[in-house]
């Protein structure tokens, strides 16, 4: 039994491997990025990060570690005080149509229906009037909101608002989707639905996604790569590739094993002074072996 546990622990480690991406092969290249706000808070210090096209990168870390700042710098909404961000080799200077930023709030235009929100955005993109409606409806279908085309945002539930917002973002067809804790305000059940939906959409469209979250489970559920960040000053401490097959299931045992491992990692990088000396191995034995589902036993690697 113990041996099997140990084996699984090891395998979860081997499924999380340090990521190495060369800048010249990257879709998004962040080099020595630093940002200091006007109030002297160093939100980012010497952050370098290369993201390949089609990757799903999760920026993971406690609140205040500069995740949003990094994301907004990618979006061009924040001008970093040092370093560069390049997309496809071109240094960015502001927002651009190839990138789209989504927030924790759905941020729909409240006076427009679900369809209206999308067609309005398509208009800004220069899509001919005749095509807007059809395109909007296609994306509404994709986020499973069919039947709610003519509904106003305030009549939708939180999860539905987020789906409408996602449909609007996808309809803009950016190559890079930047998401700042988009499911942070949803209840647990809805959040898992949204994660599964986002995953299936990502698998189909192959967009490059940079996704900010402070939820370890969410990061490992979604990401092909997880970038751990630490605060004061905001920096990247680990950059790991997640070798779990997709689509993933929230209750998958391998995933949950990995979650525990990453939580431990975060604890180590976060507060060396606060924690007792890092154990060689997380205190796993107590953690509910019997509670695992039958199919949660050691699984073949990939």
């Amino acid at each position: 039994m113990l041996r099997a546990l140990l084996g699984r622990w090891r395998s979860s480690l081997s499924l999380l491997r340090p990521a190495h991406v060369d800048a010249d092969r990257a879709k998004i290249a962040v080099a020595q990025l630093g940002h200091q706000y006007a109030n002297k808070v160093v939100a980012l210090q010497d952050v370098s990060l290369n993201v390949r096209s089609g990757e799903f990168v999760c920026l993971l870390g406690p609140s205040g570690c500069g995740k949003s700042t990094l994301l907004y710098a990618l979006a061009g909404q924040v001008k970093p005080t040092g370093g560069t961000v390049a997309i496809d080799g071109k240094t960015i200077t502001g927002p651009g149509p190839e990138r789209l930023l989504m927030f924790q709030e759905a941020a729909l235009f409240p006076w427009l229906t679900v369809r209206g929100n999308i067609t309005f955005a398509l208009g800004a993109k220069g899509v001919p009037r005749a095509e807007r409606r059809e395109r909007a409806d296609a994306f509404i279908r994709r986020v499973q909101l069919t039947g709610f085309e003519d509904t106003l945002p305030h009549q939708l539930s939180g999860g539905m608002k987020m789906r409408a917002s996602l449909a609007r973002a996808l309809a803009m067809d950016p190559t890079v989707l930047l998401m700042d804790e988009p499911f942070g305000s949803l209840d647990a059940q809805t959040r898992i639905h949204m994660q599964e939906l986002l995953q299936s959409i990502w698998m189909r469209t192959g967009k490059t996604v940079v996704f900010v979250t402070h939820d370890v489970h969410e990061a490992l559920m979604l990401g092909t790569r997880v970038v751990l960040m630490a605060p004061r000053p905001g920096r990247v401490v680990r950059d790991l590739e997640v070798h779990l097959p997709m689509p993933r299931k929230a209750e998958d045992a391998g995933l949950n094993e990995m979650v525990r491992h990453v939580r431990e990692l975060l604890r180590q990088v976060e507060g060396p002074g606060l924690q007792e000396p890092a154990p060689r191995r997380p205190p796993e034995r107590t953690a509910s072996r019997p509670g695992l589902p039958a199919q949660g036993l050691p699984r073949p690697v990939r």
């Binding site: 149509p97 941020a107 955005a121 993109k125």
Partner: peptide, 16 residues
């Protein structure tokens, strides 16, 4: 301000 920000990221500018 959230609406202003989202308009900017959607590329809604000028008279629109």
């Amino acid at each position: 301000p959230q609406l202003v920000r989202v308009a900017s990221t959607l590329g809604v500018k000028g008279l629109r």
